[in-house]
């Protein structure tokens, strides 16, 4: 209030340098209006959308706001709220990835979430329902191997091992028991 005629009429903005501020008349609350890039909040104490950190060190050491670090598995433009503004936990992983940094494949997918080409990232497990233990849909994150029932083969548990048959039983494959003399193989 510059009209009272005291030395305390005008006070510096409680904002980082470069920011301007304004007083909300009813509450007399001071609000920063032009926070530095990547920061926001009444005192520029928060990180803007797409950034994370703790610019004023309100819950620990000061961490300047940095862009979300999500292993190139977010869409920085099309998506909003890509990471938690304080912890940086990634919230909008794409390409079937998951995890704090979108650094692993999500449940039901396998491959290398950190591969550069999206097509090489995470592929669906596609486990064969009949050949997989407990009809699971998840597989090994790295190899993509589904957990096969006894005598079932292939990554996706889709065929019987040589010499076995009846995958559709849902209990694994049975031995063929062919007579070696009358069989060709």
């Amino acid at each position: 209030d510059a009209t009272r005629g005291t030395s305390g009429d005008c006070q510096p903005c409680p904002c980082p340098s470069g920011a301007t501020c304004a007083v909300v008349l009813t509450t007399r609350e001071v609000v920063c209006t032009n926070c530095p890039t990547g920061t926001t909040g009444k005192r520029c104490e928060l990180c803007d959308d797409g950034f994370f950190g703790d610019p004023l060190g309100q819950s620990g050491p000061v961490r300047a706001c940095r862009a979300c670090k999500c292993s190139d598995n977010i869409d920085p433009n099309a998506a909003v709220g890509n990471c938690n503004r304080e912890t940086g936990e990634c919230l909008k992983c794409i390409y079937n990835t998951d995890g704090f940094f979108c650094d692993r494949c999500k449940e039901g997918f396998y491959g290398n979430a950190l591969a550069t080409n999206p097509a090489d990232k995470c592929k669906p497990c596609s486990c064969s329902l009949a050949g997989t233990v407990g009809r699971q849909t998840s597989c090994s994150q790295v190899t993509g191997q589904c957990q096969c029932l006894p005598n079932v083969a292939e990554r996706d548990c889709s065929t019987c091992q040589p010499g076995f048959f009846n995958l559709q039983s849902g209990n694994g494959c049975e031995r063929c028991n062919c007579n070696p003399i009358g069989s060709t193989n």
Binding site: V31, T33, T40, G41, K42, L46, D48, D49, V80, G81
Partner: peptide, 9 residues
């Protein structure tokens, strides 16, 4: 409207 602690979409 100023809502400095929110991200309005």
């Amino acid at each position: 409207l100023h809502i400095p602690d929110r991200v309005v979409i």
